[in-house]
Design a protein around this nucleic acid. Sequence first.
DNA 1: GATGAATGAGACTTCATTCAT
DNA 2: CATGAATGAAGTCTCATTCAT
Lengths: 182, 182, 182, 182
Amino acid sequence: MKTMRADALRNRAQIVDAARILFITRGPDTPMEDIARAAGVGVGTLYRRFPDRDSLIIAVGQDVVGRLTEMLHAAREAESDAWHALGRYLREWAEIRLGLLYDALCHGMPPAVRADQDLARARDDWADLLDELLRDAKTEGALRQDVDLVDVATFMNLLIQMEPGGTPDKLLDVMIDGLRGP
Amino acid sequence: MKTMRADALRNRAQIVDAARILFITRGPDTPMEDIARAAGVGVGTLYRRFPDRDSLIIAVGQDVVGRLTEMLHAAREAESDAWHALGRYLREWAEIRLGLLYDALCHGMPPAVRADQDLARARDDWADLLDELLRDAKTEGALRQDVDLVDVATFMNLLIQMEPGGTPDKLLDVMIDGLRGP
Amino acid sequence: MKTMRADALRNRAQIVDAARILFITRGPDTPMEDIARAAGVGVGTLYRRFPDRDSLIIAVGQDVVGRLTEMLHAAREAESDAWHALGRYLREWAEIRLGLLYDALCHGMPPAVRADQDLARARDDWADLLDELLRDAKTEGALRQDVDLVDVATFMNLLIQMEPGGTPDKLLDVMIDGLRGP
Amino acid sequence: MKTMRADALRNRAQIVDAARILFITRGPDTPMEDIARAAGVGVGTLYRRFPDRDSLIIAVGQDVVGRLTEMLHAAREAESDAWHALGRYLREWAEIRLGLLYDALCHGMPPAVRADQDLARARDDWADLLDELLRDAKTEGALRQDVDLVDVATFMNLLIQMEPGGTPDKLLDVMIDGLRGP
DNA sequence: GATGAATGAGACTTCATTCAT
DNA sequence: CATGAATGAAGTCTCATTCAT
């Protein structure tokens, strides 16, 4: 594991990418063979990297959480107040359809996925960050007081599960409007 | 079809009921055998009534649309203005988790389901009714002008796909808030 | 399970028969599909009766132990002394190649098989019977004192694992000679 | 083939050693990767030395026959009469669990193995030697007249296939007793 | 007409073998 | 030359659908 061969690394990345997209568009039961084909590798390669479906899901989850965390940092730097950072963040999130968190707590995920420590830690770090953003936005008086992390994550995950080709933008607009305090 | 025996009718109803619930809680891929068992009949009986999975989905869809239509009528009668009728309707809809419309246009449904004329007609009738309600609510000045039937149905279907045990109430609250015009 | 359909019962018996023979001639890893074909049924049928390979092994084991027990009773009735009953029993046993006990204590069997209570009980009953036979034969002064059930069962299982077409008769002869006390 | 590098030779020996042990303890279907790991080399190296599983089996077979031949010579030199040499030989053979001859005639071996001329020759040389030993033991009046090479080899191979941890000693004792003429 | 047994296509996973590094 | 990554054929098991009872 020290030094992974260049092609192996590339394959791994392609697999995770393909899986992330297929998990969203076709669900977490997408045949492994389809994932392999989409990644441009054979099934065997997929199974060498990820001994079973769960470990693939975990890898995708870590990838997703990592990206969400990055995006969150970027949004805060780009905006001066928390409310606008939140809006920007949610819009970007929706745009790239980063899902697979399932109501932010991995409900509905296989036990092995829920038990994974690394993934849990990554998710917690991200959650702390988002929590802070929400708190700040409430302090600013812009965000409803009764809304929490779980509500936001749940909504975003629902949004992302929409059929591709749908137009989530308006829905998100309405929701952000609803998030604004009275 | 003229005269269906009483027990046959009862069987049919039990199957549709069981399927509606299982399609929501366990997804539209729920094994036919599980549906049959939940309905208290054998698989053979299920297949006698519904030659394949698609025709069962269609039957459930008609059932659902029928119920939604009834509920809509009831909501309008119970409330004096369209805005409150809308709110009441959405809350009731969420409560009984009547889904299976998949963003109101049956995206993601098997071709045979999308092609079914009877279901299309029933759905259109219901859509007309909901459209009218939305129009009235806009006329009242209570509903945002840019929101249409598809947005509402899409959101409701997403909501219904949430994990059972989730708390969609707050999400719906926020959304209804967002639906209110400025 | 109360009343099993006639054809289902027949199928079950054919499967166990086919499996018993194939487990001996081609090993316990024989593809399930080959077993199904040899039994004249589809794989699905095989899996309906026996949810996995282990449960099939267990069923075959019970069948085998049952037959061994019957044969042992018959041998004792047919012969007046224990020594000759033993010889007759071992020869008949070898002839029909009833194996799958794997050194009499199911060493080398999958955990699920070793854990099965019914099979363990049946095997213990048979073992008691054979033990008694060995004890009687020792009392008669015909059997070596240092030979026990495990030795005999181990040898028989080895013998049965021989390639079909081999001639185990002479080996058994030599062994029986060796079993005679000095 | 003329000059093989020292490390290549060492690798080859390690592979054959590892394979011999694994073929006995885990059967001739042991994954090639496991054999490679046990030998401390990569699969690629294994396949460079032995283009396929069959050629590895052949190499192990030659190794085993070579050892058996050596042991046989040693036993004859150590004992003055053939009967005791036989007993010593069989006991030593059992102790080191040199198998893979499969009833001495390679029944059950892949065609390519059975067709190998070198292996056949080595096995024949060994067989001649053992045959001679048996003949001498019969001449001495110690060994049953009806026992031949195949019987002995078959028995030894069965014995060696016993679960590791079993106690083949008593079985061998009984068998040697049975081998003694009347 | 109802039942549940049988079928076989298809998904998951492993491993012998090839080939890029 | 050694390595271990990639491949795909083969085996296990599930489930939609058909059909005998």
